[in-house]
Every structure is written in C-alpha cells, then in structure tokens.
Design a protein around this nucleic acid. Structure first.
Lengths: 193, 193
DNA sequence: CGCCGGATCTAGCCATTGACAAGATACCGG
DNA sequence: CCGGTATCTTGTCAATGGCTAGATCCGGCG
C-alpha cells in the first residue's frame, strides 16, 4: 500500500495528478478544485501548492503528460488514416488529457517540458502526411496537413461534446472515423471489403 | 443615451449579455464573473440574478443567441463549401458565442429556447450536404455530413486555440479553409483560377 | 388622483475557493 | 548525531456564486 498515514504522503504529486484526471474526465476542467484534490489525497489544503505552485501549474503538468502520451500513441499508427483513428481513440481514452491540452488558457503554454512534448507530438503528426500517396497531396502539403488535422480534431471534439451521439447511432467512434477518413482522403479507393 | 442613472437600468439584460461577450471573447468563459459584469453595468452584485438566475442561466442565453446567429449565417451560404467558410467566419467573428456554444457543461442544454435555435442550426447544416454533387456522397450521406462538419469544426477550433497561427502564415483563415475544403471534397476539380 | 401589486434592483450574509505566509515535521547527507 | 532541506500544516485574506430580505420604481385600476 502506497499511502499508510505518515506525515509524508509518499507520492503526493502522482496522487494529485491522478485525482485531477478523474475529476476532469468526469466533470471537465472547470470543476477542478485544488482543495478538493487535497481532500481526496488526505492532505491539507495547501499541500498541492508545493508540487504545482498553483492551479495553472497543475494543469500544465496534465497537458505535458498528455502531449507525451499523445506522441507515443500517434507514433504507433502505420499510415495517416490510422493515425487519425489513433487521434480519436486518444480523445476517448484520455478525455481529461485531451480536454486540457486544447485549452491553452488553462495552463502555462511556455513551460519547457510541455513545449518539448508538444513539439514531439506535432512532429509525429506532420510525419504522418508523408505516408499519403503522392497523388493525394494537394499542391500545398502543409494545407493537406491542416485538413487532416482538422478532420480528426473536429471529429474528436464534437464527439467529446456529445454532438455526434445521434449521428453515430451506437457505432464505435473509431470505426466511424475510419470509414469517414477513407471517404474523404481516398475517394472510392480505400474501402475495405 | 440609454443609461442615465436611474434606479432601473433600462436594458440591463442586454447590457450584461454584451459585457459578457466582451469578457469571453477576450479571456474565455472561465474568466467571466457575474459580479464583474454587474460592476461594468454599474449595478449591484445581485442584479444579474434577476435576469439570468445564475451563471449557467447567463451562459444559456449566450449559447441560444449564438445558435440563432449561427443558423442565420449558415443559411446565407450557397453551397456546402461556402457553408463551411461561413462556419469558420462565424467562429472568428463571434468567438464568444462559438466558444460557449460548444461547451455544453457551461449552460443548461435542455433550455427550450436554446433547443429551438440549435435545431434550426443543425437543420441548416444538414441541408448543406444535399448541395454536394451526387458522386461526392459516400454510400452513407450521414457520414459525409459528419465529415464536413468535423472538417469545419476542427479547423475553427484549432484556429481559436491558436494552433494554426504558424501553418497559415498570415493567410486569411477563411481563404485557407476554402482552399482546404476544395482540396478535400472536390479533389482536383474545384480549384478556382 | 391615489394606491397597490409586481418587476427590478440593493444590501447583507455565508460557504467555497485560490493564493500567500509562517511554522511544524520528517528525511537525508555529512 | 546533527543541521539543512523538502514536504506538509495551520492560519489568513480577498474574491466569487448564490441566497434572503428589503427598498424602489413602474403601470394599471378603482
């Protein structure tokens, strides 16, 4: 057991982060209260400050962890389409990370650790474009990148905000996105039997 | 002048809404404080409660107004592509409305007025799909709709979170999206001279 | 004209929160 | 064994949302 009841918690930082992820996944980042996290961890209301300085500090840590996880996840996908599917899957499996990552006003976007993780994720995303057959590149590959990113991000966002629940009709989001991506990026060619 | 300094404000409701839009556009919905709005309007800290009940009530009004405006804007666009452009334009011109609309945890999503406005917007969006040439419909037109929606929504969202600033290189967002949409939905055919 | 009821706004209060400061306690290296 | 530092606690303050009770204004009706 990691928390017996000593003066020192053992791994308060991790405990607070985990509790924060729970809260955010359940009720969104706005519902997150440092004092509530402290209560959950069984420490005093000022204990979190020592590890994260303030609310923004905690959320910076969440975002940084999210970007790192994100980069790992994306790197595992073979081609652009599966990378999009991984994007959507990440959003559904790690909704707390995802939500915080894309609300920069919540954290310190200039944090070094966060910037490194984010750069890695961005690079992975960019690399995915090159897996497209040359014909599918527009004149401007950068624009193609933005298109792919927008498609995946929009789908994930709409999904998390509950705007797709009726359109999907119980279908697994990832499968729906796979079909949708094929529809858009490889018209009439990439449908699997 | 609409506010001379009487006991009754004249149009406090509108004044509060307008002030709220300013704050949200500048610093996001989290920065919004009922007491601050009251101060801006020169009324007591409890005055807003009479018009909006509570914070969620005020944001419900913002979202409802947003969906109504949104439906009007989308209806003016001739085809699907321009409807997407209008989607992006709406996000840039009415960032406060847009942000609130797509954060349902901030307001009462079952509000009748809001539901009507939202239904109208959704219907307008759905109708846009039928302007596509038949060939572009996938087997499942509903999936095509989700694809179009995701593309526009993702682009708008990434834009507002500052994630596209470098990829666009000073280009006007609407133009960038127009090019991008042509690239995706009418491959090689719809490029304008 | 007078007055009454409802709409609008004010004043006061309480619990909760984030942030800060000062002090207590536990752990670690020498 | 001892001093220093990291970790945690206690106490405090201003700001906020939300509630209740009361003041003020407006319009209609006798």
């Amino acid at each position: 057991m990691t928390s017996e009841r000593t003066y020192h918690h053992g791994d308060l930082r991790r405990a607070l982060l985990t509790a924060a992820l729970d809260v955010v996944a359940a009720d969104g980042p706005d519902a997150l209260s440092l004092r509530d996290l402290a209560r959950r961890a069984g420490v005093s209301h000022a204990a979190p400050a020592h590890h994260f300085k303030d609310r923004a500090g905690l959320l910076t840590a969440v975002a940084a962890e999210g970007y790192a996880l994100f980069a790992d996840t994306l790197a595992d996908a073979p081609d652009l389409r599966e990378r999009g599917v991984a994007y959507v899957r990440f959003a559904t499996r790690h909704p707390a990370h995802f939500q915080v990552m894309f609300r920069p006003e919540l954290y310190r976007a200039d944090d070094p650790a966060l910037l490194t993780a984010k750069a890695r994720a961005t690079e992975t995303l960019r690399a995915g474009i090159s897996t497209l057959p040359d014909a599918a590149h527009g004149e401007d590959p950068r624009l193609t990148g933005v298109a792919a990113w927008s498609l995946a991000h929009g789908f994930a966002t709409l999904l998390l905000t509950g705007n797709l629940s009726d359109a999907l009709e119980g279908r697994a989001p990832e499968d729906a996105f796979r079909a949708l991506a094929g529809l858009v990026f490889a018209p009439g060619a990439a449908e699997e039997p």
